[in-house]
Nucleic acid binder design. Sequence first.
DNA 1: TTTAGTGCAAAAAGTTTGCACAGAA
DNA 2: TTCTGTGCAAACTTTTTGCACTAAA
Lengths: 158, 158
Amino acid sequence: MENRIESIKKQLHSQSYKLTPQREATVRVLLEREEDHLSAEDVYLLVKDKAPEIGLATVYRTLELLTELKIVDKINFGDGVSRYDLRKEGADHFHHHLVCIECGAVDEIQEDLLGDVEQIVEKDWNFKVKDHRLTFHGICYRCHDKVETSMEQEVTTK
Amino acid sequence: MENRIESIKKQLHSQSYKLTPQREATVRVLLEREEDHLSAEDVYLLVKDKAPEIGLATVYRTLELLTELKIVDKINFGDGVSRYDLRKEGADHFHHHLVCIECGAVDEIQEDLLGDVEQIVEKDWNFKVKDHRLTFHGICYRCHDKVETSMEQEVTTK
DNA sequence: TTTAGTGCAAAAAGTTTGCACAGAA
DNA sequence: TTCTGTGCAAACTTTTTGCACTAAA
């Protein structure tokens, strides 16, 4: 935790930005909720617990800055809100997402599944890939199990 | 063109929706600009040429309806705007996109590059894939060529 | 004392909604 | 007539911006 803050501090400094208390509080929230996909509003509310005087605009500006420095990735799952997702330390590719259309859960795939596909794109389309966004929509294992369970129950009830 | 309108009309009717003049004008715009990735506002302005009395709200409602019926796909490239992309007739998967970070161009890949990846996701993550979104960010062939050309020019000018 | 960063409020941008009206079944 | 669909304006949501102020270098 502390060393990741330290590392982010260095990244900011290397571009002559400061890690102000507000920015640090924001980064801490992102670190604590690494698995989640928080909207700016979500982050704002969580940061307020640590630093009640912070303004929403500052959160937006901080998230924008962190996005620029590729410390976080800004994503959009199709509801009208941008969400912010911390990059894994040293990850050169952006991880993938599984969005459940049943329960809304968003799971992450850290493994890079696109190596082969990127090669095809570079070769066949002459497109120099710098980044990617891959999201699957479908039924997550939890909802999948739920359906099976309720079907079993139905059978056993009868 | 006309037969695709006919086909969309049938799809609407099958769900007890009508293809009103406003909806038809909207669909025609989408068909004419199939390669583009129009925002609601873009569609609105183009439809206005055909049917000046149409309202923006109607365009939004029509696009929402078409999205529901999976005639168009709603996408989001990270600028704050939703874009609407007609599905190719009979396409069961949503096509992929190449977004150029240099010139902003958006190219489409109709081929399905994710067959293998989806199998892995279904098997390893126990996730029933229903749809996907895949976008690569990078340098398109045009900008790629441009850089090379300007480099050549530099050399020959010297 | 200069400059980056902040908080607040207002504005902008995109989208949705309420409602009275129009037009097809 | 009945009900779906429409246009308009207002409302709402999310994000950005202007500006005076703060605080660190």
